[in-house]
Write a protein that binds this DNA or RNA. Structure first.
Lengths: 169, 169
DNA sequence: AATTACATGTAATCCGTTACATGATTGA
DNA sequence: TCAATCATGTAACGGATTACATGTAATT
């Protein structure tokens, strides 16, 4: 998913500033399936505004830069709808952990169990983090669905590692 | 994980050509946690050879370009070992599917169940594909561990979607 | 006193893909 | 006959990160 569609989609869920969008992709329910930095978000927002797919109202603030609140236009909504009719591409997962496991067996076998034990701990942290994100006000929202999906995956990974951790050594 | 370490690691598991490395990351046990194209593999191999971390012997073939078989040098092994002492970075997952789900609810709610049903089918295909990769000659290899890990995740994702598919609509 | 959060933006740089270039062999 | 597999490599291009640039306010 390109950055443009990501911005359009987030704005379909509600108005937001570039700063807020960044926060959402860094910490919110988006964090475990997409990434983006200011260097890509701000230019995308500027361009989408030029194309009239979103519009921008400046909210004045004292002693801070004006807040630029973006919202989806009807045209933007159409473009987003069209983008969503395309089949989503396959997930792209890059796991340094799995690569390290595979290679560690060949060059540093004693490292393997450390790697796995650390990883199990990280799953616990991630599960706690995601659980805190659950929004109990709208239990059947897509947002909660996605977060719970994330939790389910984390738990499955943890369980696999816990069960099989002694197979390699 | 940078491409250099990936090449070093694959060569630690056995000698290979650039072509074979590409095949491994496109189809093998590496396929679901890393990607790389010829455009990054061949230059990396050339550079690693210059740095004497790997070496290259040309195998002549009739009516085909010479096969360049690379192997890890002792120096390369050291560099790889050192790279593996670093903690692996967090997984990076990009899922157009999850993004589409989240956004579809806002702009095209009827699309949601199609998305989920297609996805469940894709999980089945992936599970079949990964199962075929299992190497029964070395059941306790790290390679099998990683593949089974992948299968466990696919199954967990499928199960979650199957169980909760009717929550959104 | 120092760090984090708020708030926006640009430029340099990196990393990698895609497309191009070449060409024989094998299987459908 | 046409597509896929084998086999290597480069150049153009795109996309995104990192670092830079600026400055206040709240929290620790």
């Amino acid at each position: 998913m390109e950055i443009r569609t990501l911005c359009l989609g987030i704005l379909a869920l509600g108005d937001a500033t570039g700063y807020e969008i960044k926060k959402m992709v860094a910490e919110g329910s988006f964090s475990f399936f997409s990434e983006a930095s200011y260097g890509s978000i701000y230019p995308a927002l500027t361009k989408l505004t030029e194309e009239k797919l979103i519009d921008c109202r400046a909210e004045q603030q004292e002693k801070r830069p004006d807040k630029k609140v973006y919202s989806l236009t009807p045209d933007g909504r159409k473009v987003l709808e069209k983008a969503l009719t395309k089949d989503p591409g396959p997930d792209r997962n890059r796991s340094e952990f799995l690569a390290a496991l595979l290679f560690a067996e060949a060059v540093a076998p004693t490292r393997v169990s450390d790697l796995i034990l650390d990883r199990i701990e990280q799953h616990d942290e991630k599960i706690t983090e995601l659980s805190a994100l659950l929004d109990y006000n709208s239990p059947d929202s897509a947002s909660n669905f996605v977060i719970e999906y994330g939790i389910a995956i984390q738990k499955a990974a943890k369980k696999f590692l816990t069960t099989h951790k002694d197979r390699l050594r």
